[in-house]
Simulated assay, not measured.
Amino acid sequence: MPITSYPFDGQDTTETQYSLLFRELQDTGIADTYGGPSFQVSATGAGMTLSVQPGFAILRGHAVSSTAVETVTLPDAGTSSRQDRVVLRLDPAANSIGLAVLQGPDIGQTQTDTGIYEMSLAIITVDANVTAIDAGKVFDERRYAGSHVGIWTTNLRPVHPRRGRLGCNTTTGRWEYWTGTAWTDLIPGTADNTTRWNGYTLTVSTSTPSGTPSPDRIWIQPTS
């Protein structure tokens, strides 16, 4: 079997080759912090329409960028309840990625290796005979592109990390992650001498702990 390598100067590189390369570099998903607004779907309150927020995403090695709020319209409700799905659809034959609606009852995503590839943004419950979509019937199904594992000092932590960003802090000598509001050790350091464990207060002490014994209290005394 011949060996192929790319990209190099003066060499044509195909769409298929590039997508194979980039899907190894980044997961399929929304390029945003977890729970962020990118490609978020919501009911407009006007008929069977939904709003999709701007965003950036990667689908099987291809990129899609939206810079304005888009509107999608669901098919009219029927006499029975159903579920629809809003997806981003990669269509290599059309050289495009766009929004599409999959109408129930079969709303499984198509995810081929070379052809159509769909990534779900939301599932919508369409109740029987409704004329407008209720906000509480839109369920977020966005997946997010992976965050890179990093290494830094306390002073050189990422300035705008996404939730879940993981890295090794060489100042503290610990792995830490961004909760969305603060950097937190992945594995806590020294545990407190008293902690809750499976509903019990656990105390490790070489001498009898102070306080009144109680049914939910466990005392461990080291032998040395």
Score class of each variant (00 low, 15 high):
Thr4Leu: 12
Thr4Ala: 15
Pro7His: 08
Gln11His: 05
Gln11Thr: 13
Asp12His: 05
Glu15Asp: 07
Thr16Ser: 11
Gln17Lys: 07
Ser19Cys: 06
Ser19Ala: 10
Leu21Asp: 11
Leu21Lys: 13
Leu21Trp: 09
Phe22Trp: 14
Phe22Tyr: 15
Leu25Val: 03
Leu25Tyr: 05
Leu25Pro: 00
Gln26Thr: 11
Thr28Trp: 01
Asp32Ile: 13
Thr33Val: 13
Thr33Gly: 15
Tyr34Met: 12
Gly36Glu: 01
Ser38Val: 03
Ser38Thr: 11
Gln40Ala: 15
Gly45Met: 05
Ala46Ser: 13
Thr49Phe: 00
Thr49Arg: 06
Ser51His: 13
Ser51Pro: 03
Ser51Val: 02
Gln53Tyr: 06
Gly55Gln: 12
Gly55Asn: 12
Ala57Tyr: 07
Ala57Asn: 09
Arg60Tyr: 09
Arg60Met: 06
Gly61Cys: 06
Ala63Phe: 08
Val64Gly: 00
Ser65Lys: 13
Ser66Leu: 11
Ala68Lys: 10
Thr71Phe: 00
Val72Ala: 01
Thr73Lys: 05
Leu74Gln: 03
Leu74Glu: 01
Leu74Met: 03
Asp76Ser: 15
Gly78Tyr: 01
Arg85Ser: 06
Val86Met: 06
Val87Tyr: 02
Val87Ser: 02
Arg89Asn: 04
Leu90His: 03
Ala94Gly: 07
Asn95Thr: 05
Ser96Asp: 09
Ile107Thr: 15
